[in-house]
Design a binder for these strands. Sequence first.
DNA 1: CTGTTAGCGCGTTCAG
DNA 2: CTGAACGCGCTAACAG
Lengths: 338, 338
Amino acid sequence: MADIRDVAKLAGVAPITVSRCINNSGYCSPQTRARVEAAVAELGFVPNRLASGLRSKRTNTLALVLTDITNPFFTTIARGVEDIASEAGYTVIFCNTDESVSKEKKYLQVLLEKRVDGILLVPASNGLDSVALIKKRDIPIVVLDRRVPDLQTDVVRCDSEEGAYELTRLLLSLGHREIAILNGPSGVSTSGDRLDGYRRALNEAGININAKWEYHGAFTQESGFEMAHKALAGVYKPTALFATNNFITFGALKALQEMELRVPEDIAVVGFDDLPASLVTYPFLTVAAQPAYEMGRRAIEILLDKLCGKASDQYQEVVLPAEIVIRQSSGRVRKLVQ
Amino acid sequence: MADIRDVAKLAGVAPITVSRCINNSGYCSPQTRARVEAAVAELGFVPNRLASGLRSKRTNTLALVLTDITNPFFTTIARGVEDIASEAGYTVIFCNTDESVSKEKKYLQVLLEKRVDGILLVPASNGLDSVALIKKRDIPIVVLDRRVPDLQTDVVRCDSEEGAYELTRLLLSLGHREIAILNGPSGVSTSGDRLDGYRRALNEAGININAKWEYHGAFTQESGFEMAHKALAGVYKPTALFATNNFITFGALKALQEMELRVPEDIAVVGFDDLPASLVTYPFLTVAAQPAYEMGRRAIEILLDKLCGKASDQYQEVVLPAEIVIRQSSGRVRKLVQ
DNA sequence: CTGTTAGCGCGTTCAG
DNA sequence: CTGAACGCGCTAACAG
C-alpha cells in the first residue's frame, strides 16, 4: 500500500507537505495542494492513523463503556454520543460490561492500550477503581448516568432521587400505602438514589420504611420477574409496585400477568425509563423518563471540551431532571399532592 | 509513560522478550515471565497498541457499520457481534449511517485509515461502491442483513422474501384481499425482497398486483405514519397493512389510532421484526421475527474465520429463516393455508 | 528459550 | 510557505 513518501515523490514535494495537506495543518499553496490531491487519488493513498497517532499522541478515538447496549436507555445515550462525536471528527468504541466489574476492567485496559483520547463511563458497581485507573493515566473521562463516591470527576446524570420521590408521591396521592420497590443492584448509585427518593416520599407521608417492601436484584427482566413474584408471595401484598428501570418493569409486568393480576385495577405499577415512541403502540406505563439523548450529548460535549482544553478547571456535575409521564399503569389520578 | 524498554531494563531482559510475555507469542521461561510481570506492574506499563499495530499490521479492532443502533433489531445484532468479538480478543467500533451513502463512505474511509482488521457492513442503498472499496484494500468484509447485487462477498441475512410471503399468505388466509404494503426505500435489498414475497403470495392467490397498494418510504416511524395515512386516504381502503419493519409498524399503528381505526377489528396489521421480550408488556403484533442475535453471531464468526485464514475460498451466503409469530394484530386465524 | 538489528509510516522539531 | 532529520514504541526476521 502506498505510503506518504510515494505520494510525496509523485507530487514532487516532501512527505511533510503531503501530511500538512491531508490534515489541514500548516499552510500550503493551492497548486501544491492540487498536485498532492492528484497524487493521493492516483495512488489510492489512505493515511495510516496508527502511525500518525503514534507520532502525534492523538487517536481521534473515544470510548463509551456502558452496561448493555441492548437497553434502549443506553442505546439512546449512545446515539447522542456518536452523533456529536462523529461531527467533531471522532470515532467511538462501544463496550458492554453487563454490570461486571471485571469486564469493565478488561475493557478499560484495552482502551488504555489503544490510547483512546477520552472515555465516557457508566460505571459498573461503584466504579471507584476504574475511574481512578483512568485518571492516573491522565485520560479525560466523564462519568455517565451514575455517581462515583468520593472521587473528583465530571458527571452527567439524571436526578434519580427526585424522580423516584415524585413517582412514589404519585402513588401515595392515589391512595397507596403498601408500595414495593423493585430495585437494581445496591452497589450502583442509581439504585441507592431511587431508594432514597422512595423513602423520602414515604417519610413525608408519615409511612414507616419497611424492609419487606424493598427488593434488590439486577437491572434485568429476569430479576424484575423474580422480585415481583417475591413481592406478591407473602401474606401482606403491596398495592403498588415501583420498578427502578425499564427491564425490571417489564419483568414485573410479566410476573403480574402470570399471577393474573390486572394493571392498574388489581395493582398499580410505575417505573423508571420510558421507551422511545418508535417502539410503543399504546403507551401505558407511568414512568419517570430520563432524557437519555440529552445525557449522551452533554457528556460528550464536556469530554470534547476537555480534549481541546476548553474545559473549566472545576469538575462539573450535570444533573438533568426526569420527566414524570402519567399514563394508565398507575391507575386513575384522584388527587395530586401539592 | 513507561515503554517496553524501561520494562526490559528493569527486568534485565531484551525488549522483545517483554513483548513475547505480554502477547503470549513465542516461549519464555516461568522465571523470566515472573520478572517481566513484576516490572510491568512496578512501572504501570501499558503496551501501546498503536505501535504494535504499526509493526505487526494487526489492530485487533473490527467495525460494525449499520444504519441505526437505535433500532432494536440492529442493537441485538450488535450485541451478538460484540459478545463473540470480545471473547476472541477484538474490540468493535460502531458506526451509524442513517441509510446515507455519504455517511457510509465517510465512515469507511476512517475505518480504512484506522486499519481495522475487518468490517461488518449493513450497506446503505445497494452498497456496491462501498463493498468494492473495502475489497480493493483487501480487508475482510461480511455483509449483514442485506444483499449486494453482482458482487462477490460473504453475506449473512434473513430470508425476507419468504418471511414476507408467509406473512401475506397469513393475511390472505384470513380473508383479506386488499392488502397494502408499507415498505422501506427501494434501493435496499430487504425492501425489494419483502415486496417480492408479498407479490408472490398475491399471485399465488390469483390476486392482481396493484401499485395502489404498494407504498415506498423509509424505515422510520415517521414514514410508517405517513404511508398509513396515505394508504387509508383514498376511496378504496385496504383491509390489512403489511409494514416491512418495526419502526414502520409503530408509525402505522399511531396513524391508525389517530384515525380511530381499531386493530385488528377495523384493520389487520402485520409487520417485520419482533421486539425483545424485555421491552413488551402485552405482545400484540403478528410479525416475521428475524433472528437478530444469531445473525450477528454468524456474521462475526465468518469474519473471524477469515481473519485467521480458516475461511473457505468460496463466498458464503447464510440465509436464516424468519419466524412467523402470530398474535392479535392480524385478527383471528380462521383457516391456515396449507 | 532469548537477543540483535532494523524499520513499520508518520509528525515533531528546527531550519530555511 | 516548504524541507531534513529524527524518533514515536513496538515487533519481524534472523541469529544464537
